[in-house]
Simulated scan of single mutants.
Amino acid sequence: MLAVFAVGCLTLAGCSSGEFKGVYDLPLPGGADVGDHPYSVTVQFADVLDLVPQAAVKVGDVPVGRVREVRLGGDGWTAETVLEVNGDVVLPANAVARLRQSSLLGEKFVELAPPDGDTKTADAKNAGTGRLANGATITLDRTNRNPEFEEIFGALSLLLNGGGIGQLQTINRELSKVMDGNEEQIRSFLSGVNTLVTDLDAHRSNITEALDGLNRLSATLANRHEQVSGALTDLTPGLQTLTDQRTQLVSMLQSLDRLGTVATDVVDRSRADMVADLRALAPILGQLAAAGENLPQSLQMLPTFPFPDSVLNTVKGDYVNAFVSMIPAPGVPLPPLGEGVPETGLPVFPSVSKTPAPSGGR
């Protein structure tokens, strides 16, 4: 059976137009059908692991092609795989490639897929643009691989042998010592934490508004950076002056403190005398208040002193005489006056009637 299969394969290889390069050129039974017009895609991997030619290429766990070649990249560090994909399979131009494993110990294969969250594959198919084309390259930033079985167990071995697993017993023992006898305090602490978290959750909207306000304040300060910087720069000389006069300011405050102490002592000592003075002043103020209208009425006599207004109304048909004398300042010449000027040069004016008697007087 195997001989017949080998003979058939060799016959097919000899009939093909291409050069036979060995067993890797033989198609695997049950492999993917790449169709009559497949297209090739080059995929770069940082580590290709044990991927071999003729391995499957899948999209959504459906075989759509095969690995045609595995080679070293031009930089000497990157592995490159050339894939043959069925021409009817449409993928976006930014498709990603992952090196997967069919089972825990199964074969490796390459999975092609749109980027996570990309739903534009159908649009690319309908528009005919933005699709993965023949000869395209999927670079390193769009490829990855799953961890190997050996790597998982190696990391687990490191954790169990040289990691922190051995410290769990010590941690558990120390926690038991801390909690022993402190159950009430720990329970109270947890209750307080629960209350705190509950209050924070109840005021979540207020906290959010406060954070938003702080964000707006920060944005405002950021927009006014030059003004704030200028204000701080202008404050520097004033602060320097305050620093230079710190001794005088401290002395002034100490003097004010002593003045306050002395003033308090003076008020305390003179309190009794001041109260006595106010009590002695109370009768005088009382008599002034009792005078009432008499005091302002008595002041009305001042303009007609020594005669009150009542005298002016009782003298009928006569005059109240007044004499006015004027003495000029030294060096001021006198104007020529008429009769009645004495030899002394001091004019004496005749009597002038102040107010005529009311009509009907005798």
Rank of each mutant, 00 (worst) to 15 (best):
A290H: 06
Q300I: 00
L26S: 09
R142C: 08
A3G: 13
G164M: 10
R98P: 01
V90D: 03
V67K: 00
I138R: 12
V332D: 05
R71K: 15
P237M: 11
A276S: 15
P63M: 01
V67F: 04
T220G: 02
A3M: 10
L239T: 04
P29K: 08
S251T: 03
A6E: 08
G128W: 00
R269D: 03
S351C: 10
V62N: 09
A289E: 07
S40C: 09
D268C: 05
A290V: 01
V82I: 13
S176C: 12
R216G: 12
A210F: 14
P147D: 05
G65D: 02
L249M: 11
I171N: 15
N134P: 01
G73F: 05
A329H: 03
Q169M: 09
Q227A: 09
V311D: 09
E339N: 04
F153T: 15
V89L: 02
M301N: 09
G230T: 07
M301C: 13
P147N: 06
K125D: 03
L99T: 00
V348R: 13
P115N: 11
L28W: 02
T137F: 09
P296D: 10
S255N: 13
K108V: 06
L2Q: 13
I186A: 10
T81K: 02
V70I: 12
L168Q: 15
D273C: 13
A291N: 13
R224H: 14
L288E: 00
L232K: 04
R68W: 00
R173Q: 14
D265V: 04
E183Q: 15
G162Q: 10
A3N: 09
E80R: 11
A97M: 03
V324C: 14
V228H: 04
E174Q: 15
T247V: 10
E293C: 11
V48Q: 08
A136W: 07
G163K: 03
G65H: 05
L249F: 07
G8A: 08
G31A: 10
P306M: 09
L211R: 14
V311Y: 06
A3P: 01
G128M: 07
V89C: 02
L26M: 10
L288D: 03
L26R: 04
T220W: 05
L190W: 07
S359W: 05
T241N: 08
A263H: 12
D141Q: 08
T139K: 07
T261N: 12
V82W: 01
A6H: 06
G8R: 07
R173W: 00
D123N: 12
A289Y: 11
A55I: 00
T170W: 02
V67I: 12
V311T: 00
P350Q: 02
P63T: 00
D268K: 07
G31T: 02
D25S: 08
T121F: 09
S17Q: 05
R142M: 10
L299E: 09
K120R: 14
D212R: 15
T121S: 14
L285T: 14
K21E: 02
A3L: 13
L253I: 04
S188I: 06
N126M: 14
T233E: 08
R216P: 01
V67W: 00
A219P: 00
V348E: 10
G340M: 12
M179G: 13
V311C: 04
G361P: 04
E184L: 13
E293I: 10
D244A: 11
G238Q: 11
P38E: 02
D212P: 02
S298G: 12
